[in-house]
């Protein structure tokens, strides 16, 4: 067995240190080592987006990043989204729009929505559909998810 790697990173604003096997993905590290099970495994090969997290400002699938790669990096996961004032606007608009049914794709979609609106605060329906094409949802038909992301835009503007 290969030697474990020592990794120091910032996860949801907190400094974190861990040991991992080189073969462990970032998703495995988050879920199994750090007990952050909000990021979900849907496919484990980068085709469903259920494990979407934000790595140094970029949306990635945690299942196809190695845990060892994040040394010195900053990672944001669904668990870090809620602030002292409560739910993040996207979390709130997902609830208000009934944008989840089973909810297993929801953390990935919310992280994707966050990354999008940080880049493009006035994203259109078309922008959202294009941006979220790597996030599969099998329950909702996407309609209410798209609406929830649009609805979060003015709230995020106000927050700024």
């Amino acid at each position: 067995m290969a030697a474990k790697v020592h990794v120091t990173a910032t996860i949801n604003g907190e400094p974190v240190e861990f040991l991992c096997e080189p073969r462990q993905s970032l998703l495995e590290v988050l879920r199994d080592e750090l007990k952050l099970t909000g990021s979900k495994e849907g496919c484990n090969n980068g085709n469903c987006g259920a494990c979407s997290v934000i790595l140094d400002g970029l949306l990635v699938d945690a299942c196809i990043v190695l845990g060892a790669e994040i040394d010195g990096c900053t990672v944001e996961t669904i668990e870090g989204l809620m602030g002292p004032e409560g739910l993040h606007p996207l979390q709130q608009t997902f609830l208000e729009n009934a944008a989840l049914q089973c909810g297993v794709c929801t953390p990935g979609f919310i992280m994707a929505g966050k990354a999008l609106l940080e880049k493009k605060p006035q994203a259109t329906e078309g922008d959202i559909r294009h941006w979220c094409a790597g996030n599969l949802c099998r329950c909702t038909g996407y309609d209410k998810i798209v609406r929830a992301i649009i609805d979060a835009e003015p709230q995020l503007e106000v927050k700024k």
Partner: peptide, 23 residues
Amino acid sequence: TRPIRHDGVDKVTGRAVYGADVQ
């Protein structure tokens, strides 16, 4: 009416425990 679902907060915060989340 269209109330917010009771399990909603758990599911938008990543706290809801699904099958593979059991440890």
